[in-house]
Computed example of a mutant assay.
Amino acid sequence: MTGTSMEFSFNDKALRADLRERLSKLENPEPFLKSIGEEFASAGGVINQRFKYERGPDGTPWAPLSESQRRRRQKRYGNAPMTILRMRGYLAGSINYQVGGSSLTIGAGKEVEDYAAIHQFGGKAGRGLKAVIPARPYLGFSDGDLDSIEEHLMQQL
């Protein structure tokens, strides 16, 4: 997969051991991994809901648009909604997943690579790197997401 993606690992050794043991019982992990990919990266999936409700994986609301950004949008688009990261829908529309063997990658497409990264992690952007973009994470797993993944895995066993 090209573009922006993140790799997550579980820091809890007991959880990792438990998941590893359960995954080892699957003859073919690909159907399980595809079901997780669909749940998170499909058009109506978990990540799409984060864009809709403008919240990160942990439920924290994204930083609001700056006043200067609001003025620019008002001038350019009139009374268009002041949505965050959804003005044209390119980023949300590029979210995809790829399964390869026992690996699942979820991320944004190559066509929005720079835009995806700056909004996930935050940083300086624009002419002369004068604009400071706050992090507005959309990739990642909440505790509830991990519970859902565990439920999927239990259904596969």
Rank of each mutant, 00 (worst) to 15 (best):
E150S: 07
E111G: 12
D58R: 08
D143F: 04
M87K: 08
L153W: 02
G107H: 14
L129S: 11
S66Y: 05
F8G: 01
E27Q: 09
P137W: 05
N48R: 14
S35F: 00
H152I: 01
V99Y: 13
K25C: 00
D114C: 03
G45K: 08
A63M: 12
G78Y: 02
L19Q: 05
S142I: 10
F121Q: 14
F10G: 01
G123T: 05
M87D: 14
G109T: 12
V99M: 11
F8N: 01
L85V: 05
F121G: 09
M87L: 15
I133C: 06
K34S: 13
P64W: 06
E21C: 05
D114P: 07
V132I: 14
V112C: 13
R71S: 10
K52W: 03
T2F: 03
L26M: 08
M154R: 11
N79H: 09
Q156E: 12
Q98M: 14
G107I: 10
D12S: 06
T83K: 06
A125Y: 10
Y90I: 03
E54D: 04
E7F: 06
G37A: 02
R72N: 03
A117P: 06
W62Q: 09
E67T: 07
K52C: 01
E54M: 09
Y138Q: 08
S66P: 04
L157K: 13
A125G: 13
R86Y: 02
G93D: 09
A17V: 03
Y90D: 15
N48D: 12
K52Q: 12
L91P: 06
D114E: 15
G3L: 04
R88N: 15
Q74H: 03
S102E: 15
L85D: 09
N48P: 03
G45N: 04
G44V: 00
G128T: 01
R20M: 12
G100I: 12
N11Q: 07
Q69D: 02
I133Q: 05
E111L: 10
F121C: 10
A17D: 11
M87A: 13
F8R: 00
A117Q: 13
L65T: 02
R73G: 01
S94L: 09
D18L: 06
L19A: 07
L91M: 12
K124T: 12
E111I: 03
G93E: 08
F10I: 06
N96T: 15
P81H: 04
A125T: 08
A43T: 07
R71L: 14
M1S: 02
P64R: 08
Y77E: 09
L23I: 04
Y97L: 09
A131N: 13
Q49F: 01
R50H: 10
Q49N: 07
T105W: 11
N11V: 03
R127K: 15
G37L: 01
A135C: 05
R20H: 14
S68I: 03
N96M: 10
M1H: 01
R71N: 10
